[in-house]
Computed example of a mutant assay.
Amino acid sequence: MYIALISLIIFVCLLLALVVLAQNPKGGGLSSQFGAGGTAQLMGVKRTGDLLERLTWGFAIALMVLSLGTQMVSHTSGDSAPVRSVNQQRALETRVPATTPAPAPATPAPSTPAPAPATPAQ
């Protein structure tokens, strides 16, 4: 599902780029060079501009919705742990020192026997 959404996002991005390149605020743009010259005469320049503007808004909104959808799909998938950034992984790996020191044992257990005092030779 995630791969399908990503491929759909790429397709919408390409369509959005083509629609943005095809329009011009003055009404000319590349639309007449891509075979839309006949439709501009048939529908009028104003109607073609409206169509391109609506397509631009539609593709932009679809891009935002699909992007949010990929975020929701990645969090609801059956992964054991969510995908984290490098900084989040490092923050989780570092150990924070305890704020209160651990209580010292009442009687320390000797780990090695104490050496016997040496007697001086006479």
Rank of each mutant, 00 (worst) to 15 (best):
M1R: 05
Y2Q: 03
A4W: 14
A4P: 02
L5T: 10
I6Y: 05
I9P: 00
V12E: 04
C13S: 13
C13V: 10
L14F: 13
L14E: 08
L16S: 07
A17Y: 13
A17I: 15
L18G: 04
V19P: 01
V20C: 08
L21Q: 06
A22V: 01
N24D: 12
P25D: 07
P25W: 15
P25A: 14
G28H: 11
G28E: 14
G28R: 14
G29C: 04
G29H: 00
L30I: 12
S31F: 06
S32A: 13
S32L: 11
Q33T: 13
G35S: 02
G35I: 04
A36F: 07
A36Y: 01
A36W: 02
T39W: 11
M43R: 05
V45P: 00
T48G: 01
D50R: 07
D50W: 08
L52H: 05
L52E: 01
L52V: 00
L52I: 03
E53T: 15
R54I: 15
L55T: 03
L55M: 13
T56H: 10
W57L: 15
G58D: 00
F59I: 06
F59N: 04
A60T: 09
I61T: 09
M64G: 08
V65T: 14
L66S: 07
L66T: 06
L66M: 15
L68F: 09
G69L: 05
T70V: 15
Q71P: 00
Q71L: 14
M72H: 09
S74D: 06
S74L: 07
S74M: 08
S77D: 06
G78Y: 10
D79K: 11
D79W: 15
D79G: 09
S80W: 10
S80M: 06
A81C: 07
A81K: 09
P82R: 05
V83A: 08
R84H: 08
S85V: 07
V86K: 12
Q89H: 11
Q89R: 15
R90T: 10
A91V: 11
E93L: 15
E93T: 09
T94K: 09
R95S: 05
R95P: 00
V96M: 04
V96N: 04
P97R: 01
A98N: 05
A98I: 04
T99Q: 06
P101Q: 12
P101S: 13
P101V: 11
P103V: 14
A104M: 12
A104E: 12
A104N: 05
P105Y: 03
A106V: 03
T107M: 02
P108Q: 10
P108Y: 11
A109F: 10
A109H: 09
P110L: 13
S111M: 13
S111T: 14
T112E: 04
A114I: 05
A114C: 02
A114V: 08
P115Y: 00
A116S: 02
A116Q: 08
A116N: 02
P117R: 05
P117E: 13
P117Y: 12
P120V: 13
P120L: 12
A121F: 12
A121N: 08
Q122H: 07
Q122Y: 10
Q122N: 10
Q122W: 12
